[in-house]
Design a protein around this nucleic acid. Structure first.
Length: 569
RNA sequence: GCGCCUGUAGCUCAGGGGAUAGAGCAACGGAUUCCUAAUCCGUGUGCCGCAGGUUCGAAUCCUGCCAGGCGCACCA
């Protein structure tokens, strides 16, 4: 696509008073391929030429009538647009050659070379079960991690574990009062979670429980050995549980520093803020007044001397800058914390850190029940493990029904089951809330990961059956793809690189996810209209090259979403 | 009360200044001696929340309103 744009930009610059680069910027894809493949809108010329845009496009079209370029073969005026049609032979050959040569790297680039991008994602709260609410940060963050890596950035996965805070005071109180050792050992996270829920139920009637919890957290901050023992134990048991889920999902982190990691830096943070003169005492607490910036005040230290979440986040931000010297620092955290990040970034700015501009909150909507919000405290939650298990089970059943002879059913079931859950979270704009619905999660038809994986598996099946030797590159064969379904598929494959860049720039994996649905859809149309194995000679070879390229695009794209592409399913 | 986000087909959602607003699901009808029917083809539906404004042009940008969601000092 880029080569066509360059060609058209250069060509038009000899007809109109615009630089080639400016023209390239203006070029756009028409809404309907019947109009053409690349459109030059004439509106901007209308003023300087004092002519109607329609007239300009018609004059240009007649000046170019009968002419042809390398990658285009026809040009028409369509109202105010000048529409170019690609030359399918040369264009197809060029697109397929690029994919053929670049293979696993097609769509990748080095535009981010040498630049570090820490990405804070997943970041579960210790001693709470991994609910479906946490999957959004995990899945979106991991996709961004992979996408940035593909663009040459040095992505750094940071799991900012919620392993500090008043919730540990609550857990200690609950365990000391009601805890049973045997039950803790039997199923640690589940048991800690039940204690946590119980604590909140009883604390409603008895507020002294909260005071007690705050006191225990204070002890923890003061290194009280009993408090630290409890904390260490709860933390370790939780991490062991999370590790199972991360293994299943194929997710790793370079840095596993929880909030507790920053404790020793908090005095310095407080000192720094005080030296800058932006902090003040208020009712015994230390706060930063952000009123001049239209934001509510921020509390850095409670009247009992204990610190808060944002104090540790300031420390963490500074630590990340010092450790990674980042070009961009992403926080994949729910939209309900938007205010928190506005305040955090504003404080960093007031501390004169010019890199505060490179910190970006990537928010996402909540997963909700029809009846309302999920709540860990109230025990209204669906466990991620359960979602993953049910999804895999459903995939297993469908495979048993559709493809009972499949050799490795379990591998396919896992790929499809996990892919469905991931894709469900990635395919819609992240900012929107998701209503949790088992039927939707377990539906593998339509715009789903399974749809894309199925297209991939079909291609693999054809490639396995093709006679050896037909899979080699051929300029001739790759120039024979002129049927409508073939041309449309080629044009779709051509834009993977720009989709990956768009996904990164908008921090929106959904752009890539939606695009891959398009690829699968165009492949299916091709598949139903253009036989591969029963076509003859060079055409068969050309079509094999086309589906091979399609397979590559799907595999590369799904890989960036963390979704597997089984060869059979 | 103040702030942020969302509002598009019956449902779930794409599109986010430009040509006739699109998919999936659901419903109905059709396609398999042929490369996996988890597929494909066909049929119908829209005050793009409402009202103004900017513009040659607005679902898209601005303002106001309405509805829903989420936040707003001792939780994270």
């Amino acid at each position: 696509m880029q080569k066509l744009k360059e060609e058209v930009g250069l060509l038009l610059s000899t007809y109109v008073s615009l630089e080639p680069a400016v023209i390239e910027e203006l070029l756009e894809a028409p809404p309907d391929p019947n109009f053409g493949d690349l459109a030059f809108p004439c509106f901007t010329l209308a003023k300087s030429y004092k002519k109607a845009p329609t007239q300009i496009s018609e004059e240009l079209a007649s000046a170019l009538a009968g002419k042809k370029g390398l990658y285009w073969n026809r040009v028409t005026a369509g109202g105010p647009y000048l529409n170019f049609f690609i030359a399918p032979e040369a264009y197809g050959r060029e697109v397929l050659r690029q994919i053929w040569e670049q293979g696993n790297h097609y769509g990748h680039s080095d535009i981010g070379k040498g630049r570090n991008v820490p990405i804070d994602y997943s970041s579960p709260n210790i001693a709470k079960p991994f609910g479906v609410g946490h999957i959004r940060s995990t899945v979106i963050g991991h996709a961004l991690y992979l996408i940035y890596k593909a663009l040459g950035y040095n992505s750094i996965g940071v799991n900012h574990l919620g392993d500090w805070g008043t919730q540990f005071g609550k857990l200690i109180v609950a365990f000391k009062r009601w805890g049973k050792e045997e039950e803790l050992l039997a199923d640690p996270v589940d048991y800690l979670y039940r204690l946590y829920v119980k604590f909140h139920q009883l604390a409603e009637a008895d507020p002294t429980l909260d005071d007690e919890a705050r006191a225990w957290f204070k002890k923890l901050e003061e290194d009280d050995s009993q408090a630290v023992d409890y904390w260490t134990r709860f933390r370790r048991l939780s991490l062991e549980n999370y590790a199972l889920i991360y293994d299943l999902l194929g997710i790793q982190f370079e840095h596993f520093h929880g909030e507790s990691h920053y404790n020793k830096m908090l005095d310095d943070v407080i000192k720094l803020v005080q030296e800058k003169g932006i902090a003040e005492e208020s009712e015994g607490a230390l706060i930063v007044d952000l009123e001049p910036y239209g934001l509510p005040p921020v509390m850095l230290r409670k009247k009992d001397g204990a610190t808060l979440y944002i104090t540790r986040d300031i420390a963490a931000a500074i630590y990340r800058k010092q450790t990674f010297d980042f070009a961009l620092s992403l926080y994949v955290v729910g939209a309900e914390q938007t205010l928190h990040f506005q305040q955090l970034f504003k404080i960093l700015e007031l501390l004169d850190f010019e890199w505060s501009k490179a910190c970006v909150h990537v928010p996402f909507g909540l997963i909700r029940f029809k009846e309302g919000k999920m709540s860990t405290r109230a025990g209204k939650i669906i466990l991620l493990e359960e979602v993953l298990e049910r999804s895999i089970t459903m995939a297993r059943e469908i495979i048993e029904e559709k493809n009972p002879d499949l050799a490795d059913k379990e591998r396919a079931a896992i790929a499809v089951g996990l892919g469905a859950v991931r894709f469900g979270d990635l395919s819609n704009d992240r900012i929107k809330n998701i209503e949790f619905d088992w039927e939707k999660v377990l539906d593998f038809s339509g715009e789903t990961a399974a749809y894309i994986q199925y297209a991939h598996a079909r291609i693999c099946s054809i490639l396995r059956k093709a006679s050896p030797g037909y899979g080699n590159w051929s300029d001739q064969a790759s120039s024979l793809l002129v049927k409508e379904e073939e041309v449309t598929l080629v044009k779709t494959l051509a834009i993977l690189p720009e989709k990956i860049i768009a996904a990164a720039e908008g921090y929106r994996p959904s752009i890539l996810a939606r695009y891959l649905v398009d690829v699968a859809r165009e492949f299916n149309r091709f598949y139903h209209n253009c036989p591969v194995l029963s076509s003859a000679g060079e055409l068969q070879q050309g079509r094999l090259l086309l589906i091979g390229a399609t397979r590559q695009v799907i595999a590369n794209g799904l890989a960036l979403l963390g979704i597997e592409t089984p060869e059979e399913m």
